[in-house]
Design a protein around this nucleic acid. Structure first.
Lengths: 208, 208
DNA sequence: ACCATTGATGACCCAGCGGTCAACAAGTCG
DNA sequence: CGACTTGTTGACCGCTGGGTCATCAATGGT
């Protein structure tokens, strides 16, 4: 008679679906304000079932970060590692690439969440730091030191130079998440990336 | 017999004490996780009494922003307005000043809070934007445009140039609030300010 | 067909917290 | 000193939401 059962057992597919729903809800509401009930509803199952796959809300967040962000970080790092050529040109290419990625990934929302909840949930900040910030920062610092050693870049603390290069990207991402929804002007990330990298490199390169 | 009454009426002093306690608790816990009870305890009165002075949690936050931050923003803006001299030199002085202010004010904590809670409490973000971000940004944009008109600075979108200048300051502030407590390296804000402003100005100025 | 297994349900528990309010007591005025 | 005003208390309400668990039913093996 009736064709559709009220529910099905689909152990293998559940985790991915739950994480996908969690990404959406976490980025929309933030960690603390995200309701497990809502994640469950969007994933098409009940709250109780989620606890069969993730022990706690924090465990679920950890899965979100590793699933959604790590692969993309890897991709950028690999591209940089394979580069043959001058450091300035690599940087010139890297920033717009990052800007492009940030446009179509939930990086901004996750970043905002990590920043906002770091006091109450230090674990979240640690995961983000270890998975994303630390690898990216040390790559940049290595590149800058290399560029200085080869005489392509002027001297100066590599960490600070890395900040000089990356900060506007991050600020732009945060801006788009925080102020643009309120009606403040939008930020054209790739355009910022292009102008900024040229400005800073003009001050960093030993010759133009 | 007994000397001390269980409580005193001190209508005039209460608001200031409540706001001071609120600054502490908000910056420690974030807006959503801050408990009115805890603010009351630190201010030395009961929760109910707080509602005689502030109608809601959001109203209390608004008072925090205006009390703690606005005076300092005013000070920086006034300093800049009174400046007689070249735009590059003004910028050269402004960034370390801002860095110094950010070291001893709860700017970072408030900023973090605003970013983290902007989705759930857009009012907070709007207050911050109108009181702090908008005035500071338009000042910088005006300065940059003026420098360009006087031939001191190269062309380029003033808004993006403002981002290039200020972003590392903000990133540094956020870093100190988010990752330093986890054991990640600290950031010497004034040092970053000095090196960054020279790097960027080297790329922005028409002649050195 | 039947049972054992186990993915999934949804009612439930309970702690936390924003906000309220009747009662109380510290000031104040004459 | 007594009466009125009002700043302050603290118990209380209503609701929310993370996490639990007895129960059920889809599934796979035989």
């Amino acid at each position: 008679m009736n064709a559709e059962p009220r529910w099905r057992r689909r152990k293998a597919d559940r985790p991915g679906e739950i994480v996908a729903a969690a990404i959406a809800v976490f980025t929309e509401r933030g960690f603390a304000a995200a309701r497990i009930d809502e994640i469950a509803a969007r994933a098409g199952l009940s709250k109780g079932a989620i606890y069969r796959y993730f022990d706690t809300k924090e465990a679920l967040f950890r899965a979100v970060v590793t699933d959604a962000v790590r692969p993309n970080v890897r991709k950028v790092l690999d591209t940089a590692a394979a580069w043959q050529g001058g450091v300035p040109d690599l940087v010139r290419m890297l920033l717009p690439t990052v800007a492009g990625l940030a446009m179509k990934l939930p990086v901004g929302a996750v970043l905002k969440m990590v920043i906002g909840e770091s006091r109450n949930f230090p674990e979240l900040a640690r995961v983000w730091h270890d998975e994303v910030v630390q690898p990216a920062l040390s790559l940049l610092m290595r590149l800058i030191a290399e560029g200085q050693a080869r005489g392509e870049l002027r001297p100066g603390d590599p960490r600070t130079h890395a900040f000089s290069l990356m900060a506007p990207m991050l600020l732009g991402v945060i801006w788009r998440e925080t102020f643009t929804p309120l009606g403040a002007g939008d930020v054209d990330l790739p355009a910022v990336a292009r102008q900024h990298v040229e400005t800073v490199l003009a001050g960093m390169e030993t010759r133009r």
